[in-house]
Design a protein around this nucleic acid. Structure first.
Lengths: 188, 188
DNA sequence: TTGAAGCTTGACTAATCGGTCAAATTTTGT
DNA sequence: ACAAAATTTGACCGATTAGTCAAGCTTCAA
């Protein structure tokens, strides 16, 4: 069963993803979650704390699901990475990337959001770097500056999602990803 | 002299850039502009119309300044493009890219914003494509799918700005741009 | 000089915002 | 069974939100 706290976290994340933090209405979140206001303030000190918790917990969970394969695979790191990159079924191009949305909106406004986004973004980059490091280790890729390549890769992915959101054309994401993969393949 | 309307446009753009649309306070904009509320409603129907006007007019002006060189140059298109890409003095990594910020925040919320951002983003892409087309024309670059390359380039630039904003490290932008230039140079 | 148009002033409204709180209810441990 | 703790309820608060409007001022044309 979904606890009250879970209901709130889920409704908050969805509302944040749709309307951003400043556009998120507590009343809407509460209605969506089917939870009363006082009940919410029992679990969270304020709107901001609830939002930070929603982002942190949700993204952490998704990250774990998405990059844990690196631990279990022994080869085909790049191919698996490409496959997951190409998979658009997990993407919502209308709403874009939940991380990037909050980074754009809140990084320069609030220090706590900035700090959280920094760590999430850093984890994303570290996960991609780990894939490249593994690829180098097993000879799928020539030794190179994997830190820089991971930075380039994550930046381009975020840019691709943004492009698709701006134009409303999911194919834009696919086109950028293909060119990105070409670029990475150049490092074989 | 700065007209009342110009004061409003400038103050609105700055406030939008700093706090986003939903976070932009009319009271703050009016205070910054030194204009009274009734006066503002004399020039604009509402907050949204003023915001749309501020974005459109400001971005159009900047775009004109930034890409008009393509019309006057006869060679060195890529080099000039790289130089401008590398120039970080015009960038505000704390606030990021004003276009991307509004795309992220508003594209999926309001159709009028979505439509405006679509056309601005399209113009950005068209400007970059025009540079590549010129470069191909004068033999600085092998013929290739310049539409796709322009999409890739603009996406990566936006991603680079986002990365620098997320980490607070301007060098991230520089690193991504260098790798991007390497990629484009591969098309020589 | 006069009148109309353009512009400015600032008080006002209704709605929504995030947040508080005391009382009622349910759950839990003993 | 009982008490204590955890949770829920919903009315209420002050502040802020975008937006309205009638009156006054300034500019300019005839």
């Amino acid at each position: 069963m979904e606890t009250t706290r879970e209901k709130l976290i889920n409704a908050t994340f969805d509302e944040l993803f749709s309307h951003g933090y400043q556009g998120a209405s507590l009343a809407d979140i509460l209605a969506k979650a089917g939870v009363h206001k006082g009940s919410m303030y029992h679990f969270f000190a304020n709107k901001k704390e609830m939002a930070l918790a929603a982002i942190e917990e949700t993204i952490l969970k998704k990250n774990l699901e998405k990059y844990s394969y690196v631990e279990t695979y022994t080869s085909g790191f790049l191919e698996e990475f490409y496959t997951r990159l190409r998979d658009t079924s997990v993407r919502d191009f209308k709403r874009g990337c939940p991380i990037a949305n909050v980074v754009q909106e809140m990084s320069n406004i609030d220090e706590d959001f900035n700090s959280l986004m920094k760590s999430i973004y850093g984890a994303f980059r570290a996960n991609v770097k780990a894939i490249f490091d593994k690829a180098v280790e097993v000879g799928e890729m020539k030794p190179c500056d994997t830190t820089k390549l991971a930075l380039f890769t994550t930046s381009t992915i975020e840019g691709a999602i943004l492009s698709a959101k701006a134009t409303g054309n999911a194919q834009d994401y696919g086109d950028v990803i293909e060119e990105l993969i070409e670029h990475i393949e150049g490092k074989r």
